Computed example of a mutant assay.
Amino acid sequence: MNDGGQRRYGPLGKALVIIPTYNEAENIEPIVARVRAAVPEAHVLVADDNSPDGTGKLADELAAQDDQVHVLHRKGKEGLGAAYLAGFRWGIEHDYGVLVEMDADGSHQPEELPRLLTALKGADLVLGSRWVPGGRIVNWPKYREYISRGGSTYSRLLLGVPIRDVTGGFRAFRRETLEGLGLDEVASAGYCFQVDLARRAVASGFHVVEVPITFVERERGDSKMSNDILVEALWRVTAWGVESRANKLLGRKP
Rank of each mutant, 00 (worst) to 15 (best):
G106D: 00
R8D: 14
A63M: 06
K14M: 03
D48K: 03
G10L: 01
D196F: 07
P52G: 01
S148E: 10
R171S: 03
H73Q: 12
G135M: 10
G135Q: 11
R252P: 01
E111C: 03
P20E: 09
L16D: 11
I28M: 02
G13I: 11
N139K: 13
T214S: 11
N23W: 07
F206L: 15
A38H: 10
R220M: 12
D165S: 15
L72E: 09
Y154H: 13
V46K: 02
S51Y: 09
S152Y: 01
H94E: 08
S51K: 07
K75N: 10
D95V: 00
I229M: 15
P52C: 06
T238Y: 10
T177I: 07
R7H: 11
N139A: 15
I92W: 06
L183T: 01
D184R: 09
G168Y: 10
A172N: 07
F173S: 02
R171H: 05
E24F: 01
S51D: 06
D67K: 09
N50Q: 10
R252C: 02
G135P: 12
P20H: 08
L16A: 13
T153Q: 14
E78S: 11
R164V: 05
G56W: 00
L250F: 05
V98E: 08
P40Y: 06
V195R: 02
R164H: 15
Y191D: 06
D66A: 02
G54F: 07
K142G: 06
A83V: 09
D53C: 06
V32P: 03
R252N: 11
Y22K: 14
G106H: 02
L157W: 14
R236C: 02
F88N: 10
L234Y: 13
L116Q: 08
L178A: 02
D222Y: 08
E243C: 04
K248A: 15
D184M: 05
G81T: 11
Q65C: 01
H73R: 15
D196E: 15
Q6A: 14
V237S: 13
G76R: 13
W240P: 04
V202L: 09
E219R: 15
V209C: 04
L99A: 09
G106E: 00
G221K: 11
Y96I: 02
W140C: 06
V17Q: 08
L127E: 01
G79F: 12
D60I: 01
G128D: 03
R115P: 01
Y154G: 02
A83Y: 08
E29T: 15
S223L: 12
R236G: 00
P11H: 03
H94N: 15
P254K: 13
A38I: 09
F173I: 00
K224W: 13
R245A: 11
E217V: 02
E243N: 08
L178H: 00
R144C: 10
I147P: 00
P254G: 08
D67Q: 06
E61H: 03
H207M: 02
V98F: 06
N247P: 01
H108E: 05
